Simulated scan of single mutants.
Amino acid sequence: MKNKIFAIAAVFLFTGAAQAQQLNIPATFQEAEQQTKVMLAEIDKAKNGSKELVSPRTIEKDQLRLVKSGDWTSGFFPGELWYLYEYSKNTEWKKRAESFTANIEKEQWNGGTHDMGFKVYCSVGNGYRLTKDQHYKEVLMQAAKTLSTRFNKTAGVIRSWDHNKQKWEYPVIIDNMLNLELLFEASKLTGDKTYYNIAVSHANKTMQNHFRPDYSSYHVVDYDSTTGKVIKRTTHQGYSDASAWARGQAWGLYGYTMCYRETKDPKYLQQAEHIAAFIFNHPNLPKDLVPFWDFNAPRIPDEPRDVSAATVIASGLLELSTYSKKGSYYRGLAQKILTNITNKYRAPIGKDFGFILLHSTGSKPSNSEVDVPLSYADYYYLEALLRLEKLKDGKKLF
């Protein structure tokens, strides 16, 4: 089995290196800037005077859909603007990023959601990383304090949704792994180990209860909040309770790689590598490495793709490549994903309301956001491109 894996790695390394030469990152960022200028103009039109609608999420009924700051996707567009500033050093992007980030800051007090990392860390967190603005630091610390109120010591995990209480008693979704980065950052900013300990507890319990023997993950694990025992394992956005929802696998890969960065605990590195092996050895993974929305969807290959899952995987792989002994293999895979996305899944310049990428899937079972642009696909695409450029230049990611 080991020989097979390294044989596959050699093939991907060769093709990945060859295809990476076709990936012109400066030109890709220049075109992303062009699209984002289109998006900014479309946002102004779509707002129609509204002060509540702050960020783009998708295209719905041939219209740009904007969301309020409380939506879990609200922080991604401000984060994209920070990434454009980081790459270009153009202060106009910084001004835009500051403006859109300011719209998200009140979410630091919103204890009714687990999505504090997606909303606040992707926006304010990137702002703080690039500017060291003390105001941003204060927002991050308060956001982590608010998020920590959703932690149940008995179950050892952070509660995800408050909705659908008739379906779940204390639900935890695999997506929640991405919100732990805010807690790790807050622990460093405040010197308070409590945030670190909550993040580690959540990561450990998720590893224990979310994953199957083949290292695929369930989407939702429901806990008894009194005893901490698992009640059931289900899905909300995947094909079935037993299936491998593509973006869920991506969240796991990215999340455990990040947890290894923050803790240096080898079990997190091993977990990330196991998840990667599941993804890339799966017979239903297309040759271009852009997965269908669920690895077990019944009509493959006639199922929608999920480009957002591919961008999260690519970004996670690039970080994983800096820690793993199979680093060249992972970097080759990420390069291939990014090259294929750039060549085949981008929106034409000036079209699609300024979104960068097409063909993502939000929730196929709900027939919601199927085969559309999604803001988080664009966010992780730019993040992955930045990471690849840094690695090519011999720079550290963190």
Rank of each mutant, 00 (worst) to 15 (best):
P283W: 04
P301I: 02
S74G: 08
Y239M: 09
A144C: 00
A46C: 10
D265Y: 04
A9R: 10
K4A: 05
T58I: 09
G332E: 02
T361V: 09
Y87R: 13
S88Y: 08
F29S: 03
P291L: 12
P213Y: 03
R159A: 05
T101R: 06
N103R: 09
V220S: 12
Y376T: 07
H202P: 04
D352E: 15
N343A: 11
K326R: 03
T311M: 02
R159F: 08
P283T: 05
L385P: 07
Q34T: 14
D371H: 13
A203S: 07
T91P: 01
V139S: 01
A250E: 05
Q35M: 14
T28C: 11
K4G: 02
M116D: 06
D192W: 07
Y329C: 00
V312C: 05
L397A: 03
G332M: 06
A144I: 04
I25S: 04
D393F: 00
D224S: 15
A276M: 07
E42C: 13
F76P: 08
T342P: 02
S240T: 15
F355Y: 15
A9M: 08
R387E: 01
S328R: 06
L53Q: 06
Q63R: 09
Q134R: 12
D44M: 12
D288H: 14
D71C: 01
G248H: 10
L320Y: 07
F398T: 00
L374S: 08
Q34S: 13
D162T: 09
G332I: 01
N296L: 14
E60G: 00
R96E: 15
Q22S: 14
Y87S: 03
Y330S: 03
V120E: 01
A9H: 01
Q208C: 02
H359A: 09
V230Y: 14
Q21A: 10
K336F: 10
F292H: 15
G238Y: 13
K47H: 07
I59M: 11
P26E: 10
R57F: 14
F211T: 02
T190W: 07
K325L: 09
Y380W: 10
F100W: 09
T227I: 09
I173H: 12
R387Q: 06
V157Y: 10
Y85V: 03
G191D: 11
D214H: 02
K364S: 09
D175M: 13
N343V: 05
E33Y: 03
H359G: 07
G255I: 04
I356R: 05
Q134K: 15
V139D: 03
D371Q: 14
T226E: 15
D214A: 05
D302Y: 14
E169P: 01
Y345C: 12
L317N: 03
G16H: 13
G362L: 14
G354V: 02
A277N: 14
G228W: 11
F398W: 07
Q63Y: 03
L382E: 02
D71Y: 10
N284D: 14
L386I: 08
Q134E: 14
R387C: 00
F77T: 01
H236S: 08
P26V: 11
D241A: 04
H274I: 01
M39Q: 06
A250W: 11
S69D: 01
L391D: 01
P301L: 04
L391T: 06
G125E: 06
V290L: 06
T131R: 04
D352P: 05
V370K: 12
